[in-house]
Write a protein that binds this DNA or RNA. Sequence first.
RNA 1: UGGGGCAUGGUGCAAUGGCAGCACACCAGCCUUUGGAGCUGUGGAUCUUGGUUCGAAUCCAGGUGCCCCAGCCA
Length: 563
Amino acid sequence: MSLEETNPQGNNKPTDFIREAVAEDLKSGRFNYVRTRLPPEPNGYLHIGHVKAFMIDYLVAKENGGELVLRFDDTNPSKEETEFVEAIEEDARWLGIEWVKVTYASDYFGLLYDWAVQLVKKGLAYVDDQTPEEVSANRGTLTEPGKNSPFRNRSVEENLDLLERMKNGEFPDGSRILRAKIDMAHPNINMRDPAMYRIIHNPPHHRTGDAWKIYPMYDWSHGQNDSMEGITHSLCSLEYENHRPLYEWFLDQLGVFKPRQIEFARLNMNYTVMSKRKLRRLVEENIVNGWDDPRMPTLRAMRRRGYTAEAVLEFIRRVGVAKNYSVSAVSLLEACVREDLNKAALRRMAVIRPLKVVIDNYPDELVEEMDAVNNPEDPSAGSRKVPFSKVIYIEQDDFRETPPPKYYRLFPGNEVRLRYAYFVKCTHVVKNDAGEVVEVHATYDPTTRGGDSADGRKVKSTIHWVSAAHAKEVEIRMYDRLFTKEDPEEGDEGFLNCLNPKSLEILTGYVEPLLATPEVGSRFQFERLGYFCVDKDATPKKPVFNLTVNLKDAWAKMEKKGK
RNA sequence: UGGGGCAUGGUGCAAUGGCAGCACACCAGCCUUUGGAGCUGUGGAUCUUGGUUCGAAUCCAGGUGCCCCAGCCA
């Protein structure tokens, strides 16, 4: 096989069974173009699980020189709102997804009704007067066939008349449905005379208002809309596999353009929940502070937390596409976020759990401007000045009165480097009545300015600091996983019983003067701590920083293991 | 006891009858003015039984396990 045949584009694109199927269809001539569709129902906010499906639809079209249509699946007025249409578009745009047009299932209500009339005329659909309970009881079970409706053999004329009167609003909700006439004994339950239209008088539809009193079911709408729009590949998740025979049945009976439906495994992630119902409970029961609470798996939440679209996309790329049921690790997402932010985030010094240090031999009134590198990964980011003085704050974690083995940081008698400043050696501590260390005293070596010793002596640790007199007090929001279990839905106690009580911790810390009035949304690496971004709650008086993701902490891991 | 689908290191994905590989995680080391980043290295997987074949993760048959389906939701 030649290189051209295996690799028409001449590059090594990642491949998967969907892309292979699409390539086959193009090669065999089943289709001579590619058009996919993004079919969200506007009934909630997008979460990380949607991103996988969105990117498959978008990239399959893009890689094949095709088009993507953003089509809102708004066939059920009781669940859908315009607010979500806008939110979904905004989130999808943030991801960088491009579509040629926005359409709505409701755009096709008229045409779809005509198609339904066609099926009725062909004797392939009928109006059923059974109650919902009767319909359900007569559907049969997984192992037993269903029973035909007593209304199944109505005349075409009667069906036509009843359908029109359903449409005109003459009948109350639940009194009748239009059903496809297929086979009540079919082993696939979706084929047992599935409902096509149901009657819904209220609420009004978010776009068509009260123009319609009947609304199509997913099965009757989706495939037909795909066909009307000339969609070639209707890509969806595995639970629709059982619907494919019905998808194809409708299109075959209608004799219209027939797209190909291909199913893939949806994205699941550990330590979170993804179902709309559960996410809604978290919001409504004030377990989180809204849909954009940085602990939520929604895109708005991740954006607010400081995740970049690039990182999210890279995560999706690494997760891949297959048909296996799988649960991806949130730690992989975090790794992608770190990798992306490491390249560009400016480094700053911040102390989130302050401990006061007095450098006794440093002149009382002296202030020195220390040179600090903005980003060691990017020399073009330059450097900045950071003021240094006699009283500073360091991290509580960076001092121990009695150090455990392998602890290299500050403790009585030990010398460390203050990043970009001086070597300091701890001399003694001051304690409060409770016996807690409230102040550490140290001396500095004036010959080590900038952080290098003249005599070549080494220190094993470098710690960060801020000058107490120059620091800005800020609010720091430390986020952790919302749940303590990898699978919060597992077991009988339910997802609300494994909430992580420490998923949000609000701290008051200090940052270097350059961060006194940061721009909302800007991202920084607080050295040795993690990546942080400025929350929308920030005010000039009190900046607020969200923890985006922590830095890998080898010492914390070591210490934990030692216990 | 119906139908549809899926089984590869801890996790996620490759290998399309020909040396089981990649990423994250893990472990060890090097380096380091971030115990960060980076670099090097180690360990660990084809659900099971049989068959076809010179050769099987891949093909065939049986078994086992997991997921989906009985909305007038999508």
